[in-house]
Amino acid sequence: MEKSLDKGGTDGKVSPMDGALSLQNVCVDHGDRRLVRDFSLELRPEELRVLMGPNGAGKSSLLKALAGHPDYAISSGSVLLDGFSVAAASPEERARRGLFLAFQSPVALPGISLAQLLRAARQERLLPGKSLDIMAFYGELHGALDALGMDRSWSTRSTNDGFSGGEQKRCELLQILLLKPRYLLLDEIDSGLDVDALRLVVQTLRSLQQEGAGILLVTHYQRLLESLSPDGVHLLQDGSLLRSGGMELARELDVKGFQ
């Protein structure tokens, strides 16, 4: 297996004591509007934390800002990825350090197939001068497609082009399996999925967690959480972190709504 730039070592597994995705007093601005203020959270490897809140609370904006989206700025506070401050880092650098954002509505990339995208992404994670082992790559890709119940022909389809909601989410999961990120930011990975697909998501997330990934999951739906046993549930409203708790908070919100 190729030696990679991130701290994954040779088998992708990371000791639970290594690092965290650490947000301290983070403010997120969109132009001159402040969307998130004073947000703090610590996400460690193998943890799953849930971010809930009404529409417009700032959840997606926060995730995008963490990933380095050009429209959103982290205007104050700090974000450390395994001790590294991401403030000045480009989106691709954050990605190579192990950050992955699964989009709520992934953009279409006509003419760029899934295979092309993943090959480029994997190649870029190698040390300069090293080439991707194509055979091994395709072996992995096919294995991941099988695991997700996706036909081999998926790899030649233009990414997200004409995909249904469920297909889009599977495509994001496929990328997660191939890129093996350390910290996953999942923006409503469960929306629009049927029962079988949801089961697949749960399975995939559980095994990723076991392999050492830290997951920050944005969701509206309680039912996913019952199968996942989150380490923390956090309520974001109007850009501020109102409350934190465990599963009982999620259940309470499900019953009472976001008041």
């Binding site: 380095g68 989106p91 006509p110 760029i112 480029a120």
Partner: peptide
Amino acid sequence: QLFYLRQRGIGESQALGLLVNGFFD
């Protein structure tokens, strides 16, 4: 589109190359 590719760890210059080739594909 550019951000999506960069978030997958692909450098900006490479990402532009992919998008342009996708356009002509």
